[in-house]
Amino acid sequence: MIPVNEPLLDGNERRYVTECIDSGWISSEGPFVERFERELAGRVERRHGIAVCNGTAALELAIAGLGLQPGDEVLMPTFTIISCAAAVIRRGCVPVLVDSDSKTWNMDVNQLEGRITPKTRAVMVVHIYGLPVDMDAIARVARKHGLLVIEDASQMLGQTFRGQPCGSFGDISTFSFYPNKHITTGEGGMVLTNDEGLAARCRSLRNLCFSSRRFIHEELGYNFRMSNLQAALGVAQLERLDEFVARKRQMGNLYSRLLSDLDCLEMMPLSTNYAENIFWVFGAVLHDSVPFEASEAMARLGSRQIATRPFFWPMHEQPVFRNMGLFGGERYPVAERLARRGFYIPSGMALQKAQMEMVVTAVKELFSADNYQPTRAI
């Protein structure tokens, strides 16, 4: 089986982790945590980084740090990971959903103003799969309506918007370092901001809100700390970020060229007028002429030993939120189509060219004349 993702851990990872073990600094008190925060913040041109245990924790910490209150509305895409909506809901806030752009698969920024009400306090930007959201449009809307901007750049470390690093926009930004991201700490995440007061609040919330005297707490915080072992991996991975980004773009460009003759697949553009695709994953959407959906395509590729993953399932169609009485009767047709007809193929950092060619062969066989009918009911 060709895996959908496999990280590269052949740099200084073993050396730095061994240093943690030899020194005994394996908890969140170790020196690699502060080093990772400082170096990643510098990379994305932020003043402050707050390392946490995963990307979901980063989102929850960002929302809590901003002081959003129950009932506040947060604009966000329906086409994203559930962590984004869950963080809003757990704070008691209300997610207000926006459909996707059919070309970039990001939130359709042209729909934002139509979703704003007197209760709107923030917009959560989530850069999806390879191309960033139009941050100029986000900034215009945020300034006009006095909105906070939360930027989830988990899939975009190393990407830029008009030359400025993704993760450097808005009031606060977040990253994830899950193994399928451009750099990994196994699990892990980070909150970044330029606001010193906001950074201090996030650091306190991350660490149970200890007061000046230990074990005295005036506010409920979280235990969201990152370990020194995780941070050691992150420092080693960050040393190779430029190499990893170049590798991803090479893979994306090769896949795009080799699959360009398949009219039945819709692929993300190689670039826009504000960014070159970073290809966090290589996704494709089945054209409407294809008589089966992504689940069928994935099953067929799996039978050929090609691992795949489905696209995100929209927030307004999540059973857990429907059972909570949210998003009743709401429809977002672009996101619904992406969820049903979109999937991505192997595109991990360790993928080799020969494996990519095998994937391309399998995909082309999938859409050959002899294989174009569904093998089971959809």
Rank of each mutant, 00 (worst) to 15 (best):
R309V: 14
A236D: 02
E243S: 11
W105C: 09
E243K: 11
Y222H: 06
M76E: 04
N54F: 03
I50N: 11
Y16I: 04
I172H: 03
C202K: 08
L366M: 07
N12W: 02
D136H: 12
G221F: 05
S211Q: 03
S295R: 14
R14C: 05
I128Y: 11
M356C: 08
C264N: 04
D288V: 05
K119D: 11
A231R: 05
N253R: 15
F367W: 09
I278G: 10
V191M: 12
F177V: 10
R14N: 10
Q155N: 14
A246P: 02
V320W: 04
L220V: 12
M267E: 01
L238N: 10
H287M: 02
L238C: 14
F311L: 09
N54C: 14
K353D: 11
R340D: 06
I82E: 07
T56W: 07
T160F: 08
V109W: 02
A335D: 01
V96E: 00
P314N: 12
T18K: 13
C202M: 15
E13N: 00
G252Y: 00
G114D: 13
A362M: 06
M315R: 06
H217Q: 13
Y274I: 07
Q230S: 13
R376Q: 14
A232C: 07
L286A: 06
I128L: 07
R90P: 00
F36D: 01
S227E: 03
L192N: 05
M135R: 11
L59V: 12
I378F: 10
G283Y: 08
F210R: 08
E196P: 05
V281M: 12
M124Q: 11
V149D: 05
F79P: 03
H316S: 05
P77R: 15
S260R: 13
E73V: 13
A51P: 06
M356V: 13
Y16V: 05
G302W: 01
Q155I: 00
